[in-house]
Nucleic acid binder design. Structure first.
Length: 933
DNA sequence: AGAGTCACG
DNA sequence: GACGTACGTGACTCTG
């Protein structure tokens, strides 16, 4: 049947896809012969997803994969240098190219390439033919060169991210609609494809010109009218080059194609061809999935290395949630406990009524001792939702809660049995509230984090999809979402069991997949000395919490509310009408349209910027409204985020606030604090500091704060080997004043606060991967001045330049950097081009410094409990704020505590790393956090 | 859900 | 040569 209305053609940019898959996916090799197959695997997964219609789009009725043909094209005749700068294909990718063609045929999909034409031209031709016949077209590619085809029933989709690219996305990228994309490309050129364009004109400027003049020819005809001399000259001088560029970027829509679209009609998968191919590639998971879908038997895969003895590896059956056992009585549980003792380890996962481990109740426990073998032990399921007067009735077929716990406690506490968990801190806290101490443990989240920080997230879903090629059952399918959401105890046991047990199964599989990687990646020490031992320490801190004075917060809230009302009234008067002060959009319109204040700048979303820096500039020019808005915003922030929200977080039973630290959240090794975030409690303004007064000690106790002084700059001095800086730290000098003196030649005793402030900004800038632009912005000085500062800084402290260059080179080569303690932080984006690479470079420069500081305080925290015990110190560690630790301790023990903990903190780097600079810790004591700090 | 804004180190 | 840029986080509000 001929293609037409109601049909949907998918055109896959084959070369583009495998190139991206190669760079985005971990380097997978075929087990039997180490043939690299990562990109092929990604390609097969994408094909299968597409055929299933599992992409957020409907399934295609017609489908083809289009490849580039390696021979030259008409573009080389027009412009011999076309794509001349392409780097050679990576060695590991080369053998995968023919395999992707094979894969396409194995899936029964039309595979197209044609001599003399790029894939893009063929895609253009087919897309236009299908569109004109009335069919829908989706191009699977993220190549910007194809964006000119979008519109009128043609859309694009990013095959890796499943993101749709329509006319709006094209406009966002090029500043013009799809029909004018080639004109913008012709002007802006493209360094990757070596399209010359007009020198001095980038995408932004090009879009501006095209929007005003229409297209390249009209623009060139009226080039004389352009005001900016540089632009005008560039257009006049390069007119021919621009015309050539346009021909290069314009896709040929009328290639005399050798294959018709009707031949692309989707055929049912043939098990006889697709399964043998997948098995030959040794893609276990997708082989099983495809076999299951076809109702065929999956072929056995022999991936024994050809010239190595058969390995005694645990067999990994496919994940099948219908096979898990539900444990309903003591006899069944005892069998599992026996198996655990036999094995010596067990994967454990808990199901609870919520995400807040201080309030959620245990509903069930899952165990797994072997991939594919897992059980669910329901303990507190109920029928229905209950009512206001009483709880719902307990479901049938569950073990007695206490009896189960009584049986499991010895196993969970057995020092000879390893408990394997994903995000162990959560489950440990749940068990701790039931008086069960879980130890020893392994945590798959942290095993992943130690090896792969910066490469991907470390949640179970992400890890499972990446390393097991399996998407876990979404919890939403059981408990729903939004208003109608129920808690896990209300889920029927038969529904809950497959979901719950699957998590234990997955955790165990992740452990077998990830743990062996620690040794070759040299991250065992990081995991064993800085990740895993931190878990029990954080459990103690989080469970203990910090006392917060609700009345103090409540009083502040009221006073803030009054203040806001007053400011709001003033602001409305100044604006001449009422509007929502909290809406940046409305504020921008008031300021820059209605009041017609100069200097309004619209960002990429088309809204005016109204950030604090912009409003400050306006306020300094004498405008009252922005000044009042700044005041209002400050008060509003303090009220909503701190005085109001913090009260909600006071635990009804403990009367304290219990934050939760994420150990694997920040790429650099820092912790992050959530629910609530206690690492960003105000301190910089007087008014904000009063919120710290609400953090108090229990009667008879005090709060003690100990913080590292200038730890990141000290680490910089050490890593970059800057002698003068190191000496200054040894001499205990004011480091910013010393920097200023060194740079500007001002003697220390004549130092002015302003000169010191500038030097301080530069010191921090260096840690952040300095740029003239950034420093200029920060100091509000011209960029040339900032550039001069930086040059002088590099001159005075030559080690810095070397450190930055060495770090960049290392990052570029290895796609990662390291801390002094061996923590790896990956920076994969360093391989990209454009602004993303810039971000990656600055992050790479910052990460070893921020990360080493994070390592040091982690080591200190891990040592503190034992040190306090040895010194027989009462009191507790409560909070960590990156370079500060906060304790609560009986008043008369405060001085001893400071002595003991300071010692631990100042020596925390030893014996692993010797520093050329001393670490210095300042301490303070007080009835509340404001006083202690 | 994402952008904008702002609190911290 | 242009582009867009200080590093790392989390929470709240508005808006589509």
């Amino acid at each position: 049947m001929a293609i037409g209305k109601g049909h949907h053609l998918h055109l896959i940019d084959g070369s583009g896809f495998i190139f991206r898959a190669f760079h985005a996916l971990p380097p997978l090799t075929r087990k039997s012969d180490s043939l690299p197959v990562g990109a092929v695997s990604g390609f097969c997964n994408m094909l299968f997803k597409m055929l299933e219609g599992n992409t957020g789009h409907d399934a295609p009725t017609h489908l083809a994969v289009i490849f580039d043909h390696s021979a030259k094209t008409f573009r080389n005749d027009i412009y011999p240098q076309y794509k001349a700068h392409r780097p050679p294909m990576p060695e590991d990718l080369r053998p995968q190219i023919p395999l992707t063609r094979e894969a396409t045929r194995a899936f029964g999909i039309c595979c197209i390439e044609q001599e003399g034409w790029e894939a893009d031209d063929l895609i253009a031709t087919f897309a236009v033919q299908a569109r004109d016949a009335g069919a829908r077209v989706t191009i699977i590619s993220s190549d910007k060169d194809l964006m000119q085809l979008v519109g009128g029933g043609v859309e694009m989709m990013d095959g890796m991210k499943n993101v749709t690219i329509g006319p709006e996305e094209v406009e966002a990228k090029f500043g013009v609609g799809p029909d004018r994309v080639v004109d913008v490309q012709a002007l802006a050129g493209d360094s990757v494809d070596n399209i010359p364009g007009a020198p001095g004109i980038g995408i932004k400027t090009a879009a501006l010109l095209i929007n005003e003049y229409g297209d390249v020819e009209s623009l060139l005809a009226r080039a004389e009218e352009i005001k900016q001399p540089k632009r005008r000259q560039s257009l006049i001088d390069n007119a021919e080059q621009i015309r050539i560029s346009k021909r290069l970027v314009t896709l040929e829509q009328h290639v005399p194609v050798e294959v018709g679209i009707d031949a692309m009609e989707v055929q049912p998968l043939d098990p006889e061809t697709v399964l043998p191919f997948l098995a030959e590639m040794e893609f276990r998971t997708i082989t099983n999935r495809v076999a299951e879908k076809l109702g065929a038997k999956a072929p056995t895969i022999d991936d024994t290395p050809a010239n190595a003895p058969a390995m005694d590896e645990p067999d990994m059956p496919p994940i099948d949630p219908s096979k898990y056992e539900i444990v309903r009585d003591a006899e069944a549980l005892q069998i599992w406990i026996d198996r655990i003792h036999e094995r010596g380890y067990v994967a454990v996962d808990t199901e609870t009524t919520g995400l807040d481990e201080m309030r959620a109740d245990l509903v069930g426990i899952c165990l797994s001792v072997e991939p594919g073998q897992a059980c669910y032990i329901p303990l507190a399921h109920v029928n229905g939702t209950g009512d206001l007067l009483g709880g719902a009735e307990r479901s049938e077929g569950q073990m007695d809660f206490d009896r189960a716990l009584q049986m499991l406690k010895p196993v969970l506490e057995d020092p000879a049995i390893l408990k394997i968990l994903q995000n162990a801190k959560y489950d440990i806290k749940i068990f701790a509230r039931l008086n069960v101490t879980v130890a020893p443990i392994d945590d798959t989240m942290l095993i992943s984090y130690a090896q792969h920080a910066g490469l991907h997230g470390h949640g179970m879903d992400a890890l499972s999809e990446r390393y097991l090629d399996h998407k876990p059952i979404p919890i939403k399918e059981l408990i729903g979402a939004g208003k109608k959401q129920i808690t896990f105890d209300q889920v029927k046991i038969d529904d809950a069991a497959p979901y719950a047990a699957e998590d234990a199964d997955i955790t165990l599989r992740l452990w077998t997949a990830l743990k062996p990687g620690l040794i070759p990646s040299r991250t065992t020490t990081v995991y064993e000395t800085m990740e895993r031992p931190l878990v029990p320490v954080l459990v103690q801190m989080e469970r203990h919490g910090i006392k917060v004075d609700r009345d103090h917060l409540s009083r502040m809230s009221n006073s803030f509310a009054q203040k806001m009302a007053g400011l709001e009234h003033e602001i409305h008067e100044l604006a001449g009408r009422k509007f929502n002060v909290g809406s940046p959009k409305q504020l921008g319109e008031i300021l820059f349209d209605e009041m017609a204040i100069e200097g309004g700048k619209k960002g990429k979303t088309g809204a005016y910027g109204t950030g604090a820096d912009i409003l400050e500039t306006l306020a300094a020019l004498g405008h009252d409204l922005p000044a009042r808005v700044l005041d209002w915003r400050q008060v509003s922030k303090l009220k909503s985020t701190y005085t109001d929200a913090l009260q909600e977080h006071i635990h009804p039973e403990t009367g304290r606030v219990h934050t939760s630290y994420s150990i694997a959240g920040a790429n650099t090794g820092r912790l992050a604090s959530t629910d609530p975030n206690l690492q960003n409690i105000p301190v910089r303004t007087e008014e904000g500091r009063r919120i710290r007064e609400a953090f108090i000690a229990e009667e008879g106790n005090v709060l003690v704060s100990l913080d590292y002084s200038q730890i990141e700059l000290r680490i910089l001095a050490h890593i970059a080997e800057i002698d003068s800086l190191k000496q200054a730290f040894r001499d205990g000098l004011d480091i910013h004043a010393m920097t200023a003196s060194e740079m500007f030649g001002v003697p220390l005793d004549e130092m002015t606060p302003d000169v010191r402030r500038q030097a301080k900004a530069i010191n921090f800038g260096v840690i952040y991967g300095i740029s003239a632009f950034g420093l200029a912005n920060n100091l509000r000085i011209p960029r040339e001045d900032a550039k001069a500062f930086i040059d002088r800084y590099f001159e005075r402290f030559p080690g810095i330049q070397k450190y930055m260059d060495d770090t960049k080179a290392f990052a570029k080569e290895h796609k990662r950097v390291e801390t002094l303690f061996g923590r790896r932080i990956h920076t994969p984006e360093i391989a990209s081009s454009g602004p993303r690479a810039g971000f990656a470079y600055r992050a790479a420069i910052n990460a070893p410094i921020q990360g080493t500081a994070a390592d040091i305080i982690r080591r200190a925290m891990i040592r503190v409990p034992a040190a306090m015990q040895a010194a027989k110190l009462p009191g507790r560690m409560l909070l960590q704020v990156h370079d500060e630790l906060l304790f609560e301790v009986p008043r008369d023990a405060a001085d001893d505590l400071i002595g003991t903990v300071r010692e631990v903190m100042e020596q925390a780097h030893l014996p692993a790393v010797a520093l050329d600079v001393p670490l210095v810790v300042d301490g303070g004591t007080g009835a509340n956090w404001a006083q202690a700090h």
